Amino acid sequence: SDDGIHHRVWIVSDEQDISMLEEDFNQVPCTYIADGHHRAASAVKVALKRREEHPDYHGDEEFNYFLSVLFPDDELAILDYNRVVKDLNELTDEAFLRKVGEKFEIKSLPTKDKPKKKGEITMYLDEVWYKLKVKKDVLKAKAASPVDSLDVAILQDELLAPILGIGDPRT
Rank of each mutant, 00 (worst) to 15 (best):
W10Q: 15
K45P: 05
D126H: 11
E52P: 00
R50V: 01
K103Q: 08
F71L: 12
V147Y: 14
K135F: 06
V28D: 11
G119Q: 09
V46Y: 02
L159Q: 09
D148Q: 15
I166G: 02
P110I: 01
I33N: 04
P115I: 01
I33L: 11
K86A: 13
I106Y: 00
A143K: 15
D74V: 00
L76M: 15
V9A: 14
H7P: 02
N64D: 13
R170N: 06
G167T: 14
V128I: 06
E120K: 02
V12H: 10
Q27D: 15
K112H: 08
D2T: 08
H37Q: 15
M20F: 03
V147F: 13
D24C: 15
S108I: 01
F71Q: 10
D157W: 04
R51N: 13
T111G: 05
F63A: 12
E102H: 03
V152K: 14
P115E: 03
L159C: 07
I166N: 04
K142I: 04
F104V: 01
L139N: 07
I121P: 05
E127D: 12
S19R: 13
Y65A: 12
V12M: 06
Q27K: 14
M123I: 04
G4K: 04
L125I: 03
K112I: 06
H6P: 00
R39T: 05
A47Y: 00
D148P: 07
K99N: 10
D157Q: 15
L125N: 02
L79P: 13
L109A: 04
D137A: 14
K131T: 09
K140T: 15
V134C: 13
D87T: 04
K118Q: 07
L70C: 14
L125H: 01
K99Q: 06
F104W: 02
G59K: 03
E22L: 10
L67C: 06
K99H: 12
R83L: 00
L139A: 06
E75G: 14
I11H: 12
S145R: 08
E62G: 10
